[in-house]
Amino acid sequence: MTDRLRTALIGGGVALVVVVLLFIFGLQRALIFGLVGGATYSLVALGLVLVYKSSGVFNFAQGEFGTVAVFALFLLTTNDVPYGLAIIGALVVAAVMGLLTERLVVRPLFDAPRVTLLVASAGVSLLAIGVEIWFGEAKLRNVDKALPRQGRFKIFNASISDQELLLIFTLIVLGVLLALFFNRTNLGLAILGASQEPVATELVGISVRRLSSFTWAIAALLGGLAGVLTIPIANSFGPGALTAGVLIPSFTAAVVGGMTSLPGAFLGGIIVGVVQSVAVTADFLEDVPGQSSLSVFVVLVIVLTIRPQGLLGKSA
């Protein structure tokens, strides 16, 4: 059985089991809410896995790439820039932040232990939050959706807004694009190669430094996309928006799927989203405070103790 086939079967199998269980317990709505919430985690997790595959770093700044993008989106739209252009502008800002992070923080620490880089990226996210509070004040703001229509569809008694569909659609498109990129294009293969054999890559004539910049820019774009597509759904946002409630579930999603697996990020995101959704809506957990972060924590501990490589990751 080829790896691809096995991957697809595991993914399909798990999904099927989850869906059936939800129906049995009458929690179909949670499935829909979970899919939408999970889509955000998947998107952020994609960026996390990308950075991890290419440099072995756990990027704690991934959430802030998104928050910064949303702030930019807000600034642009409130200054009467057309929405489409504003999105592009926001993504550019995110990419620039990614490039700056790579150049000023990641590159000097290229040979440092991976944990130092983890702490450094946490520093970057804190710095970003600090600057956001400084220039943006600690209050909540609103940002318009790209597609404002609500309640067009109802599945299993849960209504999905247009914006949420846009999010899911973008995720799917991105998934296909990234898969094609990493499996078919020279650049994609080079990025994967550079992570495993940086010296050999340089010898073949590929600049590992340029690849690193490129990778972080893409990761930042993914983070930025997550921000501009998701935040308008919740409507209001403040400093640290994507780090506070999104980063840890996204990391959990990446771990569940397997930190080395891009398809895993998708699967993981959905799983975490659905689990969280079930924990919040289910009756039997009603009296437990903080169900959403508790459920994520439990999932993380279970996966790391039972199957640390995640569902689709390579065995250590």
């Binding site: 972060s293 508790l294 640390p308």
Partner: peptide
């Protein structure tokens, strides 16, 4: 838990634990 889970991943667990502690 740290005996079973390697460095970087353990960092994740501690972060998640902290958030869980605050919430729950």
């Amino acid at each position: 838990i740290s005996l079973r889970v390697r460095g970087l991943y353990f960092a994740l667990i501690t972060l998640s634990y902290g958030i869980m502690a605050e919430g729950t």
